[in-house]
């Protein structure tokens, strides 16, 4: 399993990345939406397509919502599961992200257990890890 963790906070990238690595994910990182699109484009050359993107909302250059829309507009990345991981937590914001094409939504702060529960919902938990 492969994951791309997109957050302007490197502390948060490290936290999310560490949990995902514990579940056997190979993790790459990006500091904003544009960087993340670059990682996706560069990955194509080596057939590196993530199974999961964890996406912060508020980031410089390109925010998480714009990133979701950009990925959804590209059929090459149809298989990628998109999960917002953000402190934005009003109903309206969650609806907006889901409407743009995000599959799941994890609100900061979260525990490792909460991230694991979301992976289980998305069918991205490797076998041998109990839900």
């Amino acid at each position: 399993m492969r994951a791309l963790v997109i957050d302007d906070s490197r502390a948060m990238r490290r936290i999310v990345g560490t949990i995902l690595k514990d579940f056997g994910f190979e993790v790459r990182e990006a500091g904003d939406g544009q960087q993340a699109l670059d990682v996706l484009q560069e990955g194509k050359a080596e057939s590196w397509v993530p199974d999961l993107c964890c996406i912060d909302w508020n980031m410089p250059v390109m925010d998480g919502l714009q990133f979701v829309m950009a990925v959804r507009a590209n059929p090459e990345f149809r298989q990628v599961t998109l999960m917002m991981v953000t402190t934005e937590s009003e109903t309206g914001q969650i609806v907006k992200a889901l409407a743009a094409g995000a599959h799941e939504y994890l609100i900061k702060p979260f525990t490792a257990d909460a991230l694991r529960d979301k992976l289980a919902l998305l069918g991205l938990l490797p076998e041998g890890v109990s839900a």
Partner: peptide, 16 residues
């Protein structure tokens, strides 16, 4: 970065 993220998470929850 870490103190900023703490402020960000607190801020987002206050905003909501």
């Amino acid at each position: 970065d870490a103190l900023g993220e703490l402020a960000n998470v607190l801020g987002g929850n206050v905003k909501s």
